[in-house]
Write a protein that binds this DNA or RNA. Structure first.
Lengths: 260, 260
DNA sequence: TAATGAAGTTTCATTTATTGAAATAGCAAA
DNA sequence: TTTGCTATTTCAATAAATGAAACTTCATTA
């Protein structure tokens, strides 16, 4: 199937159930049956059956009095192995704290997941005005510093898949031309870090660096993001040193081989 | 359906898919098709279809070379609203840090989720030997201090449901007699905290207190747990003050009304 | 107090999807 | 090259899902 037009065999009923789960998860407050049915576009009786199923399986909780549904903590339980307190997470957290102690800025640790990045750790800085990303937040690869920092160190096949998936314009400086984007990734790979200067958002700039694993693979990285009023190009230059030192040290401690 | 023998209408196909998801999530390393099929007990072709579905929906990632499946960070993304950085989480974290600063012990914040508790926040203490619970870990209600601390403040109907579900013996001091257990909950309610003295595990003791919301409802609490060699009954007595002050202060800051 | 409207729940004939045994494909090891 | 095992596909039979319609519940309105 990979690279093929023919889709893999799948289960349409399961897709429906997952759509219902996502609708409930996305809502900041409990939802009624009609709300969910409207959000997912399924018949009420189909939606009702899926809600019952998810509740019985423990993924959502039904408030029997209000007849409303909300997400259960079971999904947090499923995430356990992903977010477990292990050596990698501990060392990473130390490095985030180090950068934040040196710079005062909020620092993020992200992983590559499919064709996006996911924020998994964060240490808040002292600045009152900061970019407020949440654990679990996903970001595109083509127009964020962390996305480019991770993508530049993937194999060419994957890079081409991302390019083929499209480079939609998100801000005034988003690179949408495939050739220009490939050049940018070459630059990122050469210099070992990436900058987002109004590519993802016109009010924010970022800088990010990859973390290397023992086999040379890159699956996560560190980034600093902030409002462009404070994150001038000069400020990014000041942040580069602490960021790269931390990324290098973390890679070494994990047994990684940066810049091989 | 509540209280009825008749089950709600559900989707058996969805249950199968969720079982597959849970099997992949539970594995510390990527699994092949045959591994998953064996773990869930479904035919390989059924399992194959569910894996394809979960992969296409983004919940698991397929390594095309090794033909192995692992959990995606999408479940972390679904958890966003549950673990979001909000005022409750910020204040709670401050209180955990306060207790840990005063006592040196690891502190936990747990929520009531169905008939279990889930660990959602943790501040590590300075002690080398500590109970190593993970974010997402679930615990029973009937034999943990946090379980009893939360259960004691639920309405009687829910308490009776938990008792009806069974009080299995987990350690030498587990309360398995319903009447003795009801008395214990009365005591917890009266004193405002709970102690687990070899009820959950014969090598650990714990103390926990509920957090009150503005409407008087109790949905989460704080607990301290440790090896029984350090967590003597006297030590629990020493921890009671810092724990109750923090729980009280957090309840007040959240607008809650403790012990109404 | 009765009528109305909307949300939630159930029914069931019809339709669609799923199932899984068997066959086939792929690939590493002997 | 053969063997053995995993992964993938096929498809007739079976089971499940679907959703329109009916029914139930309850709050609101006249």
């Amino acid at each position: 199937m990979p690279g093929s037009d023919r889709k893999a065999v799948t289960s349409s009923t399961t897709f429906k159930a997952l759509r219902v789960l996502e609708a409930v998860a996305a809502s900041p407050q409990p939802m009624g049956l009609s709300d969910v049915a409207e959000a997912v576009g399924f018949d009420k009786s189909t939606t009702y059956r899926m809600l019952n199923t998810l509740a019985e399986a423990g993924y959502i909780v039904r408030d029997d009095l209000a007849k409303r549904y909300s997400l259960s903590y079971k999904v947090v339980y499923l995430s356990r192995n992903l977010l477990a307190e292990n050596e990698v997470m501990r060392l990473s957290h130390q490095m985030l704290e180090r950068i934040t102690a040196e710079t005062g800025e909020t620092t993020h640790l992200c992983v590559l997941d499919g064709q996006q990045t996911v924020l998994i750790q964060k240490v808040k800085g002292t600045q009152l005005v900061a970019v407020d990303f949440q654990i679990g937040d996903r970001s595109p690869l083509h127009c964020t510093s962390i996305g480019k920092a991770l993508l530049a160190f993937q194999d060419v096949r994957f890079i081409e898949e991302v390019i083929a998936a499209g480079l939609p314009k998100m801000a005034s400086n988003t690179l949408t031309d495939p050739e220009a984007f490939r050049k940018e990734l070459h630059l990122v790979r050469a210099q070992g870090y990436a900058i987002d200067d109004h590519e993802f958002s016109d009010s924010m700039r970022c800088i990010a660096a990859p973390i290397f694993e023992p086999d040379g693979h890159v699956g996560m990285g560190i980034s600093l993001s902030g409002p462009d009023t404070r994150y001038t190009l000069q400020r990014l230059e000041e942040l580069r040193g602490p960021l790269l030192r931390a990324a290098w040290d973390l890679s070494e401690r994990l047994g990684g081989a940066p810049w091989k």
